[in-house]
Amino acid sequence: MVPTHYYLILGAALFTIGVIGVLTRRNIMIILMSIELMMNAVNINLMAFSDRLQQVTGQVFAIFVITVAAAEAAVGLGIVIAMFKNKETMNINEIDLMKW
């Protein structure tokens, strides 16, 4: 049996990778994927805690997170496509009409 803290370390590592991805990558799609990675890191944590505490709340929450993340991804892609029609770029640095 794998100890709980292994899962927590995995979750923390994935979350950190996601945060670094959002902060450093310049491609919109990769930023979106990094955000998804962060959400799923949270799911791993929830499942690990749920197993350790023998409580089903964490698993229910994880299902809600998956559902909401799907809705969010759909809206996010829609926004990216709407923008792409007006300006053909995927680089976040070129989306700079408004500053300061």
Binding site: L8, G11, F15, G18, V22, I28, I31, L32, I35, M38, M39, A41, V42, N45, L46, A48, F49, S50, R52, L53, T57, G58, F61, V65, E72, V75, G76, I79, I92
Partner: peptide, 21 residues
């Protein structure tokens, strides 16, 4: 709004997961 909003939602979720734990 979308990128920063969902970024911060992920932080909130991580906090919730830790509180639950």
């Amino acid at each position: 709004y979308f990128l920063l909003g969902s970024f911060s939602s992920a932080f909130f979720l991580y906090g919730v997961a830790l509180v639950f734990g």
